[in-house]
Amino acid sequence: MFHRVGFIARGLAVALVVMVFGTAHSATLTGGGSSFAAPLYRAWSAELHRQTGFSLTYRSVGSGEGQRLIMAGAVDFGASDLPLSGDVLDERGLYQFPTAIGAIVVVINVPGIASNQMKLDGPTLAALFDGRITSWADPRIRALNPGLRLPDLDVLPIHREEASGTSQVFSDYLHAVAPDWKAGMWGDGSEARGNDGVAASVRQSIGGIGFVEYAFARRDRLNTVRLKNHAGQFVAPGKAAFTGAASSADWLHADHYAVNLLAAPGAQAWPIMSATFALVPVHPAAPATRAAVKAFFRYGLKQSDDATRDLDYVPLPTPVKERILASWP
Score class of each variant (00 low, 15 high):
188 D>G: 07
118 M>P: 00
120 L>C: 08
1 M>Q: 11
147 G>W: 10
129 F>G: 00
159 H>N: 15
173 Y>G: 01
264 A>M: 04
304 S>C: 13
50 R>K: 01
189 G>V: 02
110 V>D: 00
300 G>Q: 02
111 P>H: 14
85 S>Q: 10
228 K>H: 09
234 F>Q: 05
183 A>Q: 00
86 G>W: 11
100 A>T: 12
67 Q>L: 10
209 I>V: 15
282 V>P: 13
187 G>L: 07
44 W>Q: 05
61 V>P: 06
58 Y>M: 06
101 I>V: 08
275 A>Q: 04
184 G>H: 15
191 E>A: 09
159 H>T: 14
71 M>Q: 13
213 E>C: 06
8 I>Y: 03
228 K>I: 00
93 G>E: 12
124 T>G: 09
179 P>G: 15
185 M>A: 14
68 R>C: 10
98 P>F: 04
89 L>T: 04
61 V>E: 05
168 Q>M: 11
89 L>C: 03
170 F>D: 01
31 G>L: 13
217 A>S: 07
281 P>D: 11
137 A>R: 12
189 G>M: 12
133 I>Y: 00
321 K>A: 04
26 S>G: 08
327 S>E: 02
70 I>D: 10
195 N>T: 13
165 G>K: 08
192 A>P: 09
290 R>I: 05
150 L>Q: 09
307 A>I: 02
95 Y>G: 03
24 A>H: 11
78 G>Q: 06
54 F>I: 02
79 A>R: 12
175 H>I: 15
120 L>T: 08
258 A>K: 12
194 G>C: 09
126 A>T: 11
224 T>F: 04
34 S>N: 11
51 Q>W: 01
177 V>W: 15
329 P>H: 02
280 V>A: 05
329 P>K: 01
108 I>K: 00
65 E>V: 10
6 G>Q: 14
21 F>P: 00
68 R>D: 14
281 P>K: 10
239 K>G: 04
175 H>D: 03
49 H>L: 02
279 L>E: 07
134 T>W: 01
274 S>M: 10
53 G>E: 13
184 G>Y: 02
16 L>Q: 02
164 S>I: 14
319 P>L: 11
112 G>V: 11
70 I>W: 11
41 Y>H: 08
265 P>L: 11
285 A>Y: 07
167 S>G: 09
240 A>Y: 14
88 V>H: 06
97 F>P: 03
109 N>V: 07
310 D>A: 06
30 T>V: 01
302 K>N: 10
324 I>Q: 14
299 Y>Q: 12
34 S>V: 08
168 Q>L: 07
298 R>V: 00
47 E>C: 05
91 E>T: 02
157 P>I: 01
180 D>M: 15
326 A>H: 06
273 M>W: 12
149 R>K: 11
94 L>H: 02
307 A>C: 05
251 W>Q: 08
296 F>E: 04
181 W>M: 00
102 G>H: 03
133 I>T: 09
13 A>E: 05
192 A>K: 10
241 A>G: 06
285 A>Q: 12
172 D>V: 05
73 G>A: 05
18 V>F: 15
290 R>T: 10
91 E>H: 14
267 A>I: 01
292 A>C: 04
265 P>F: 08
69 L>N: 12
120 L>P: 14
129 F>I: 00
